[in-house]
Amino acid sequence: MTVRLVVVSHSAKIADGAAELAAQMAPDVLILPAGGTDDGRIGTSLEKVMAALEQASGDGVVVLTDLGSAVMTAESAAEFAADPDSVLLADAPLVEGLVAAAVAAQTGADAAAVKDAAEAVYRPPVHPAEAEHVHQQPPDATGDFELVNQAGMHARPAAKIAGGLSAMDADVTVNGADGASMTELMMLAAGKGTVLHVEASGPDAAKAVGYLERLVGSGFGEP
């Protein structure tokens, strides 16, 4: 079982399209679109969202929303849900947040970690120089790994790294970028041959560095 995702948008096309896009990177994750009103207009429907939450209930549900009233409808639906505490609303951009959440759910992360993966997309990138100021303590584990796959760091590897790390209890930076943020990793624009310097702190620091060593060393399973 994995965490299920519900997409609440004013537009049925947006909800369907975002779900379709995210499903491409997370084939085993149930992603339910709940867009538009009952009669096919632009808007949000409590009934549609409640039905999706019902269908998604089980191992935790994370909800992604678009504009204002989608958030309010999702909050209302969550209050009516059989187990309101199992429904988490992610405060994240819909498309990027959904993709990051789907990737995290695919790797088996729990609902809180899936929500966090979505919201990590939102956080402004920390400038490496500032990051060094913040991390006064030496990291618990480090490693340097060379990108060996042809395409280097693109969307799929970034998603794998961010997804896997979001399920671990560790703060990880990769060349200064937040390892749990797919967008920050992609912004490194690291090509084949680039050495990734990994610094990890927290209980799962060694596990996180080991995870990156295997992932990068195997070329993310790509040529």
Binding site: I42, M72, T73
Partner: peptide, 11 residues
């Protein structure tokens, strides 16, 4: 909540 569609529905 079900029929209004816009922000006024949940509010």
């Amino acid at each position: 909540m079900s029929k209004v569609g816009g922000a006024a529905g949940p509010l």
